[in-house]
Amino acid sequence: MTDVLVCVKRVPDPTGEVVLTPDGMRVDGRYAGYTTSAHEEAAIALAVQVAESTGGSVTVLSVGAAESVEQIRAGIAVGATDGILVEADPDLLGPADVAAAVAEALRVREEAGRTYGLVLLGNDAADTGDFQVGVRLAYLLGRPVVAGVQTLEVDGDVATLRGEGPEGTEVYEVALPAVATVLEGGVSPKYPSVVGRMKAKKAEVETLGWTGSPVGAGREALTVPEPPPNEVTVIGEGTAAAPGLVAVLRELKVVHG
């Protein structure tokens, strides 16, 4: 039986246009809405697979504002068991702080008799893209960590994890307890059923605080670069444009022979 903890982050929907807050310090998600990163949705789907195959459970944890409970409940709606909200001002936290807050929440759970054989996170957050929280957490916990995982299986005390490397699919076999960061692409994200939504509404979400002193992220400001002015040359329409397109390919010297 493997209990899995999945860490998710409430992020402004990255598929929409990026609008900044007036002070230029944050992405304003009021119009685009908020969501969970694609990598973390994949992490939840993998965690649910592990829980189903080992008879374990899945806890979704988020460090952030009170509203992050929406992302926690979204995880419960697709198969997680319960949730933990570590309430903290996300603007004050850097990746080292988030890792410390997760580690502290794990200690609280452990003292209450709940241990997690596997902790899954997204490989990188869709908004801040720091690529560090999972690795920093693993060092705080003294556990091995694998990054960029797309599929995983647990057999007893060993996890087999796969991710794409430069020369092919890299396979790791790691003794539990362990930490892994997940990249989307290896598993389809789950969609909530009506029953799942009902369960999510009622599920228990424990709220914890974090007592550490944040070191922050060093952010001074955000900018959205203006797209450079562009004039597109329309070669033509339909099949009649084929000769013109080939002429451009030859001009670019990408046609050989």
């Binding site: 597109v232 329409e237 339909g238 390919l249």
Partner: peptide, 21 residues
């Protein structure tokens, strides 16, 4: 945002480009 564009269905344009090549 492109430098060049062909307005048309890729399923028609690409075979014509392959033939031209």
């Amino acid at each position: 945002k492109a430098d060049y564009a062909v307005i048309g269905d890729m399923h028609e344009v690409l075979p014509a480009v392959l033939e031209e090549l």
